[in-house]
């Protein structure tokens, strides 16, 4: 957290709990709206957060989203304890999925998640360790300019 952070909040997410899916990203969306950020930025951050929240629920044991906002940037750090990703490049491929039938019946797991997270961010970092978990760092510029 830098000294110019105007807002910071942590949101825990429990793996496997589909009944609460979307609650964290909904809260993040409303917080960003309240902070007065522009609608396109709020929407991009909300969609990326929702995908990340779903990924924790679908694949990890537990995790959290940490939202921090500075005057020029929105950061969302997503960390989970879970199986990790063996081949990140493959996991980023649109359409590639290891989702179960249950996830697909709910309408998810089409293999768009990570690619869609990246598409909605202005900077995207992913690291993963097999057997331990995955970490994403998502950055959104609040002036709405796409680099």
């Amino acid at each position: 957290m830098t000294k110019d952070t105007v807002f910071r909040q942590e949101f825990p997410v429990k793996g496997g709990d589909f009944s609460r899916a979307g609650e964290v990203s909904w809260e993040i969306k409303n917080l960003l709206k309240e902070l007065g950020l522009s609608t396109p930025v709020v929407l991009r951050a909300a969609i990326a957060s929702y995908e990340a929240e779903l990924n924790i629920i679908m694949y990890a044991w537990e995790g959290r989203l940490v939202l921090s906002v500075t005057p020029g940037r929105v950061h969302v750090v997503v960390e989970d304890s879970g199986p990790g990703i063996e081949d990140i490049e493959l996991a980023m491929t649109e359409g590639y999925s290891t989702a179960t039938l249950e996830m697909r019946e709910l309408g998810f797991g089409a293999g768009m998640g990570l690619a869609n997270i990246k598409k909605n961010t202005d900077a995207f970092l992913i690291t993963s360790e097999v057997g331990r978990g995955t970490r994403l760092e998502l950055t959104f510029l609040t002036n709405g300019q796409r680099p």
Binding site: F18, A21, G22, S25, W26, K29, L43, A46, I47, Y50, L106, G107, F108
Partner: peptide, 15 residues
């Protein structure tokens, strides 16, 4: 054609 609660949650998120 989906009728579960995630349809509404997705819908409200993307407005």
């Amino acid at each position: 054609g989906l009728v579960n609660t995630h349809v509404v949650r997705t819908a409200r998120l993307v407005e």
